[in-house]
């Protein structure tokens, strides 16, 4: 049967609630969680050559996590009331978990960084092990913020928290590669040539590790989309929105091709021995993950609800 022409003559659409600040906030917490995990891995392995990376990342994590919530507060309609979050908590709301996690995690991160910088290895290891679940929940809960807002088909999937975690790892490692490469290039002159060679190898190894996390991320994204395309009509609409709709250039172009496939080729392909390629790949990866946050947060809301 031919569908009759359908035109909406009048309807009210209210302004999209969550704007770019929220995506940006997800991006920063992701970076922070990713770099914290790398730092703890470096500390736990305890080998001397991992020290510089452990140190850089230990300081990056809390700094990024102090920037991140500022985005959240900027997004509030009543920023001066942000303390209501702590006074009038609601345990069924993921934002409440977040407000406590976002307080505990930077404090932990700062103490951990002090331990790393003052070379107290055992304390740093213990704090690191305790900190990893915290880092994971700080970022994992952001996935729950989207997943539990059940109105939006693009968000309301069980894969969302995991996708957020894995892409956090990807962008976090990317940032560490960039910072470590800057250090190697300009601030590492005192080291002996062998040591420099070793540092460079380490950075390249990190970049390869990043490529493997990208593969995991791609697998999750593809499975999420496949399920969206076979689920109910709203989910189909959400899937088509990012595959062929308004957000396709950002999703397919920037997130998948520019932010995942090209970096993977750069890091694992013929240029795998080049530091420049690793840095370019890391920058692209971060652009891709930022685009992913944007597509998820903003794209998810552009599907009309009525």
């Amino acid at each position: 049967m031919e569908q009759p022409d359908i035109n909406v003559v009048y309807n009210v659409k209210h302004q999209l609630p969550l704007i770019i600040y929220i995506g940006q906030y997800f991006f920063f917490t992701g970076l922070s969680a990713g770099s914290f995990v790398i730092s703890v891995i470096a500390t736990l392995l305890g080998r001397k050559e991992f020290k510089p990376i452990g140190k850089i990342t230990a300081i990056l994590a809390p700094i990024l996590l102090i920037i991140a919530p500022l985005n959240l507060i900027a997004d509030l309609e009543q920023p001066l009331r942000f303390w209501h979050l702590f006074l009038y908590y609601n345990w069924t709301s993921p934002i409440t978990y977040g407000s406590f996690l976002l307080t505990a995690y930077p404090i932990m991160g700062i103490i951990y960084a002090i331990m790393v910088y003052t070379n107290r290895q055992t304390a740093a290891k213990i704090l690191g092990i305790l900190g990893i679940p915290l880092a994971i929940s700080v970022h994992g809960y952001t996935g729950f913020i989207l997943a539990l807002a059940k109105a939006r088909a693009l968000w309301n999937t069980a894969a969302m928290p995991t996708i957020f975690l894995v892409s956090a790892m990807v962008s976090g490692i990317g940032l560490v590669v960039i910072v470590a490469a800057i250090r190697w290039k300009w601030f590492d002159k005192k080291a002996t040539p062998e040591q420099r060679e070793q540092d460079k190898r380490l950075i390249l190894q990190l970049a390869q590790f990043m490529a493997y996390t990208i593969m995991l991320d791609l697998f999750l994204v593809v499975s999420d989309i496949l399920v969206l395309l076979t689920a109910h009509s709203d989910a189909l609409e959400a899937g088509m929105l990012i595959l062929t709709g308004n957000f396709a250039p950002l999703f397919v172009g920037v997130e998948i091709i520019l932010g995942a496939l090209i970096p993977m080729v750069l890091v694992l392909g013929p240029t795998r021995k080049s530091l420049t390629a690793a840095v370019v790949a890391s920058i692209l990866v971060n652009i891709g993950v930022y685009a992913m946050r944007f597509v998820m947060v903003i794209g998810g809301q552009t599907i009309p609800l009525s």
Partner: peptide, 16 residues
């Protein structure tokens, strides 16, 4: 007097 304007409720409500 209590709403902080996080707009999470708007994002969650399926009815706009």
């Amino acid at each position: 007097h209590r709403c902080i304007g996080c707009k999470y409720c708007i994002a969650s409500c399926p009815y706009d």
